[in-house]
Amino acid sequence: MLIINMPDETSHSTDANSNSTEPAKSWEQRNPEIEREITIDEYQPTGTLTLTLLYFAIVVLMWIFMYFVEFAGNAPSIID
């Protein structure tokens, strides 16, 4: 696996200081909760695509609902 030791935007941050003895380790390697480091080349955000499509589907359904509220389900509210 390709491991890039990326420069830290906050290179002066507390974390960088406290880890100055082991500068070669990336954040992922230092974090016990992280099982594996995924680089940008390996990463395929398929879950994001799934969620986005679900959201668009919900929005379309809501628009259809609004259509019935506004035009199809009601008599003209002002004239009525």
Binding site: E35, R36, I38, Y43, P45, G47, T48, T50, L51
Partner: peptide
């Protein structure tokens, strides 16, 4: 933002061992 933030969260979840579409 929806894309970038969710993709960043998914990246975190996959680094924590997450799999699958959802």
């Amino acid at each position: 933002t929806l894309f970038t933030v969710v993709a960043s969260m998914e990246h975190g979840a996959r680094q924590r061992g997450g799999k699958g579409y959802l």
